[in-house]
Simulated assay, not measured.
Amino acid sequence: MDSATMRAVVAHGAGDLRLEERPVPVPGPGEVAVDVQYGGICGSDLHYWRHGAVGEFRLREPLVLGHEIVGRVREAGPGVQAPPPGTPVAVHPLDSCGRCRQCHAGRRNTCLDTGYLGSAARNPHVQGGFADVLVVPAERVLTLPEGLDLRLAAVAEPAAVAWHAVRQAGDVRGKRVLVTGAGPIGCLVVASLRAAGATDITVTDMHEAPLAVAKQVGATSAVRVGVGADHLEELAADIAIESSGSPAGLRTCVYGVDRGGLVVGLGLLPPGDTPVAANALITRELRLVGSFRFDTELTEVLHALSDGRLAVEPVVTSVVPVTDTQKAFELAADPARSCKVLLDFGEPTSL
């Protein structure tokens, strides 16, 4: 690899993941180039690798994966006011249109024409950030609070997803909360609940390893599905947050909350219509709300990570060099061996 090229992690189809050389991008007006240091592997990245699709969004061209990105400012485009080169930053992955009724209502995360790093929802696709250098609009580059380690900051994007879900739940102080699914997002939901003042947090999962991480970040009770989980319908939680993305997890939430309780749907369910215990929703007078991505929460989370309110260090279980991308993805796909796996891009590409 010479100074004019960089490495990029590219999905070409189901099971076809490649580490390629690509030209180093140069920022134009209104843009900033970032030397990527860490990229967190998300469930959506795993779906593009394994299935060539995330829900209804299918690969129609090669896609650079990755949207959980932190690094350092490389250079700014012409006339751009940006932090000086070398400044540690996080990258907001959302590109909203700014014109639709959702954007005008302050709900950019539900924009009618949104783009997201590393997503096949649009055609052409929105190329992602698993590359040595990423160019984005300057307003999406967020300077890290002083002293915040880049490795810890790499968890900020998925933590903002969890933070938004907890916000959708309202005031959780002193509440009993059930969380279904102890993957990276579920564990970050637990940490966010703890930061927001929830006192009794029960989390469920199919594997012991993620449950152990959930307890490290604040769960007061961990239940392995199928082993002592029968009592969950008697839990009578005030709030349930579904983060497993499974119909079974949603059913557990519906029956695990008390009558008049609140269920927050966070994990994306399989495409198509999903059977729901609608009669239970009605007769138990439950409220069901959705939670999708995030907006301004990324800035809040960066400060919460910096001041220690959001304790998530145990969530990062592995950091793998980008040269071992295949190994990293295989590890991230195995919940018995990992929680959050980071790709390490190492030293910046030369200018």
Results as ranks from 00 to 15, higher is better:
Asp2Cys: 08
Thr5Glu: 12
Thr5Asp: 11
Ala8Leu: 14
Gly15Ile: 06
Asp16Asn: 12
Leu17Thr: 10
Leu17Tyr: 07
Arg18Pro: 11
Arg18Asn: 13
Leu19Ser: 13
Glu21Thr: 15
Pro29His: 12
Gly30Ser: 07
Glu31Pro: 00
Val34Tyr: 01
Asp35Lys: 02
Gly40Glu: 05
Cys42Gln: 04
Leu46Phe: 05
Tyr48Phe: 12
Trp49Pro: 00
Gly52Val: 06
Gly52Arg: 04
Val54Gly: 01
Gly55Ala: 08
Glu56Thr: 11
Glu56Leu: 09
Phe57Thr: 03
Arg58Thr: 12
Pro62Asn: 12
Leu63Arg: 13
Arg74Leu: 00
Arg74Cys: 00
Pro83Gln: 03
Pro84Gln: 12
Pro84His: 07
Pro84Thr: 11
Pro85Gly: 07
Gly86Tyr: 01
Thr87Asn: 05
Ala90Ile: 09
Leu94Tyr: 03
Leu94Trp: 03
Ser96His: 14
Ser96Val: 08
Arg108Val: 14
Thr110Ala: 15
Thr110Phe: 13
Gly115Ile: 11
Gly118Cys: 07
Ala120Ser: 08
Arg122Met: 14
Arg122Phe: 07
Pro124Ser: 13
Val126Glu: 15
Gly129Arg: 03
Asp132Phe: 02
Val135Asp: 02
Asp149Cys: 07
Asp149Met: 11
Ala156Tyr: 01
Glu157Phe: 03
Glu157His: 04
Glu157Arg: 01
Pro158Asp: 09
Pro158Cys: 03
Val161Gly: 00
Ala165Asn: 04
Val166Trp: 01
Ala169Val: 06
Ala169His: 03
Ala169Asn: 04
Gly170Asp: 09
Asp171His: 13
Pro184Leu: 07
Gly186Glu: 05
Cys187Gly: 02
Val189Ile: 14
Ser192Gln: 06
Asp200Tyr: 00
Thr202Pro: 00
Thr202Ile: 05
Thr204His: 09
Asp205Lys: 09
Lys215Tyr: 04
Gln216Thr: 05
Ala219Asn: 08
Thr220Tyr: 04
Ser221Gln: 15
Val223Cys: 09
Arg224Gln: 15
Arg224Glu: 13
Gly226Trp: 10
Asp230Gln: 14
Glu233Asp: 11
Leu235Val: 13
Ala237Tyr: 08
Ala237Ser: 14
Asp238Lys: 11
Asp238Met: 11
Ile239Phe: 05
Ile239Lys: 05
Ala240Lys: 05
Ser243Tyr: 02
Ala248Asp: 10
Gly249Phe: 01
Gly249Ile: 04
Tyr255Val: 14
Tyr255Ile: 14
Tyr255Met: 10
Gly256Trp: 08
Arg259Trp: 09
Gly261Met: 10
Val263Lys: 06
Gly265Thr: 10
Leu269Ser: 02
Pro271Gln: 08
Gly272Gln: 05
Asp273Val: 13
Thr274Phe: 05
Ala280Gly: 00
Ala280His: 10
Ile282Gln: 06
Arg284Gly: 08
Leu288His: 07
Leu288Ile: 09
Ser291Asp: 07
Ser291Cys: 01
Asp295Lys: 04
Glu300Pro: 00
Glu300Ser: 10
Val301Gln: 00
Leu302Asn: 02
His303Cys: 01
Asp307Ser: 12
Gly308Trp: 13
Arg309Lys: 13
Leu310Tyr: 06
Ala311Glu: 14
Glu313Met: 10
Thr317Tyr: 01
Thr317Ala: 01
Val319Asn: 07
Asp324Thr: 04
Asp324Leu: 04
Lys327Asn: 05
Glu330Cys: 03
Leu331Phe: 03
Ala336Tyr: 02
Arg337Ile: 02
Ser338Phe: 00
Lys340Thr: 00
Leu343Met: 03
Asp344Glu: 07
Phe345Glu: 02
Glu347Met: 01
Ser350Leu: 14
Leu351Gln: 15
